[in-house]
Design a protein around this nucleic acid. Structure first.
Lengths: 105, 105
DNA sequence: TTGACATGCAACCATTTGGATGCATAATTG
DNA sequence: CAATTATGCATCCAAATGGTTGCATGTCAA
């Protein structure tokens, strides 16, 4: 799961996921058209996304098609973020009380 | 939002959030007891978490209390992850079809 | 079969990151 | 007041990161 968080930490990589969400199955070349970096830099980002299993690739001839895999994001939402969502109102209340107490003292 | 993703990218920082979720309002010293690094290293992590607004601190005497702020995580879940969740089944279907086609050819 | 096209691989570079160490400051306590 | 405690600030360091450039490989098309 650390892989996934790390992969999501970079704006260019999130951009790539957005591009695939808009149009799934794009080649490297097409993805690069929307990015302000060399093809090789984009390749590195895509490699991290693949390693985090956020992107799955399929070779067709000399082209490499990139597909979004939504499963890891779903798992993070479900397992990790879910835990914070469950305690969300309590945490907000803790914070509110602490801030009030601060003003009193 | 980039701040938040970056802050979440490190396992030690996610650990700190977990510690606060378990027991909100801890001092720096108490948080350090659970971490395998120097106090100064932990301070740096907490600084990033504060800058991402994931943690709010309150001074009480010489102690600094750390509180979880659940809002940024909620926003990410809502705005960013939500977009992927909405297209999740379609993305899975795209991927499934692409993999099937690959086997045919 | 030759040339163009899509991608990969490797080396290199600057900056950021995660951590340590040493010293400084402010608050509490005996 | 002196000693202890809780934290901050600055510097240094190694490793990771994000990017570039140059060259290599495999595929398609004339």
């Amino acid at each position: 799961m650390d892989n996934v968080f790390k992969a999501l930490a970079d704006a260019s990589r999130r951009r790539l996921l957005d591009l695939l969400r808009a149009d799934n199955g794009q080649t490297l070349g097409r993805l690069c058209e929307h990015l302000d970096m060399t093809r090789q830099a984009a390749t590195k980002h895509l490699k991290l996304l693949e390693e985090a299993n956020l992107v799955v690739t399929i070779w067709r001839g000399r082209e490499k098609l990139h597909y979004l895999n939504p499963v890891p994001i779903h798992e993070i939402a479900d397992r990790w973020i879910g835990q914070f969502e469950r305690h969300r109102l309590r945490a907000l209340d803790d914070l509110k009380k602490a801030l009030e107490e601060e003003n009193d003292v």
